[in-house]
Design a protein around this nucleic acid. Structure first.
Lengths: 282, 282
DNA sequence: CGTCGGTGATACCGGGCGGGTATGACAGCG
DNA sequence: CGCTGTCATACCCGCCCGGTATCACCGACG
């Protein structure tokens, strides 16, 4: 009756992303008519129109937008279930820890050292990922635990253990006049004409418009700051990877950043529980 | 390749629950051989044995236990997706609020009054459910928001807004000598020979063994306390429904109970957001 | 120790459904 | 008024899901 098949959800998500049945069918490796029919069946079963087929294009209805969100998390969940089940079958319990490349290096090292000292330490594989990819990696089972940062990352749906709290600093080129300052305010760093703030991608990989350069990872950022082209606000532990061409200036009015260890809610993994216990003693 | 179909998951969950292919097939309304085959296909696709078929019975492997957990939440999620999508299509935005029957009556009334006074108030349907059913109702989409209690309920996977914090009290028969006390400790109330503590079901509906009577809802509890057969520890707001045959004695050393408004993480519902905003102003 | 009951697995068959191809309907556009 | 691009419809086919019949296996029992 109301049993959504994952195949249908996969089809719907692709169509909703492409907003074009032909291209969606191509991406799915099938022909367009069966895809149209599958979406119609889905709509009939739900008793809801998910897509507005106007001439010249397809648009999501409100219900379609809701189902798109739901379907994405369900498909992630299905992939996660398969991965976790396979992982559970392999005898070697290995944990995958996801973290932003370059962030919290010292903290990570401390945690790994402490964990390795435990008697029944599970092997830990560290996966470096882009900004904000940790949530998706946890959701779809590619990672078991992750370093995330409050308030930047959305922690909804995860259990967390607070690790450290630190202020933020502005990273500026050492040659820039601002490098001589002993402190700055958020307003000051946001409004330097010759030093626009670097822009990070949002979760969809898009960039908000703005004057600063578009950044994907910390090595890009480090280079561009060293070149004197941009500046950025990061948490204080970023000092551990600064170049001599960088200067870190404390921000007096910035929000405190808490780095947390996050894992999927309801996780029953003993290995995760062990790592969390170790982390809570740090 | 590794695409778990919900049909397969439904089959697997049923078999894992029954631990018997014949009965599982009957519950699923199908014959046993196709069910066996479907499970075999699932195992082959995952490359994992999920069930140990010993003579005399079927048992879950470790991987099978993992998949059972995952599959249950996935199936709940699929049902939720269907319900939420249908709900989104109906023009009248109606919110379903789940709460334990009888708990937090005054708080609920305040919230509903405040919400009704809002200009664009969505209609709210209150669903009373058993102890701890709120989590499942949120997960499978039967409810949009719920009253839950920290630290009793597992809030993992939900966003929450704290509402009130209150101490716990012991509810004892007014005729019992303890009713004359002005305060009690947890140890004292746990160890009264003629007044064993009532026992609540765990999430599976089972009862831990113990001397006290097995309780399903507050009306049962109220009756049994009034009869002088049992006692219970509840949060202080339970006073609002006490009978004259009851007495509430403060517990000096009990944990504080925080009642929270909870909703599914990542909810993008405007109606939920509105209610949360109202609640945060209470 | 043979038989029987109960279990899951296997063999085989039929129908329905998912998918393909060809084509239609329709709007925008030159 | 064709042309083009788009999604829907019509129709056919092959596969896979599900059903029936049966087997293989083991435990229980007299």
């Amino acid at each position: 009756m109301d049993t959504l098949e994952t195949r249908e959800l996969r089809y719907f998500v692709t169509v909703a992303e492409e907003l074009h049945f032909g291209r969606a069918a191509e991406r799915l490796g099938m022909a367009q008519p069966p895809l149209s029919r599958a979406i119609q069946q889905l709509e009939r079963r739900l008793g809801v129109t998910l897509l507005d087929r106007n001439r010249r294009g397809v648009a999501l209805t409100g219900a379609g937008q809701v189902l798109l969100d739901e379907a994405r998390t369900l498909l992630d969940g299905a992939a996660a279930a398969a991965r976790r089940t396979r992982r559970a079958a392999s005898t070697t319990t290995r944990l995958v820890l996801a973290t932003k490349a370059g962030a919290n290096h010292d903290l990570l090292r401390n945690l790994l050292d402490a964990h390795a000292a435990e008697p029944d330490a599970a092997e830990i594989e560290v996966v470096l990922c882009g900004m904000g990819d940790q949530a998706r990696m946890l959701r779809d089972g590619r990672a078991d635990v992750a370093f995330m940062q409050r308030p930047f990352d959305n922690l909804a749906g995860f259990d967390t253990e607070d690790l450290t709290t630190e202020p933020q600093v502005a990273i500026v080129p050492a040659a820039h006049p601002l490098a001589a300052r002993t402190s700055l305010t958020t307003a000051e760093i946001s409004d330097v004409p010759d030093l626009p703030l670097a822009r990070w991608p949002d979760p969809d990989g898009r960039y908000e418009p703005g004057p600063g350069p578009e950044i994907r990872d910390l090595s890009q950022l480090a280079q561009l700051i060293a070149l004197g082209h941009t500046t950025a606000v990061l948490c204080a532990s970023a000092r551990s990877w600064l170049w001599s061409a960088h200067a870190a200036i404390p921000l007096t009015d910035s929000a405190l950043v808490t780095t947390v260890l996050a894992w999927p809610a309801h996780s029953r993994s003993r290995a995760v529980a062990g790592l969390v216990r170790t982390a809570s003693r740090l």
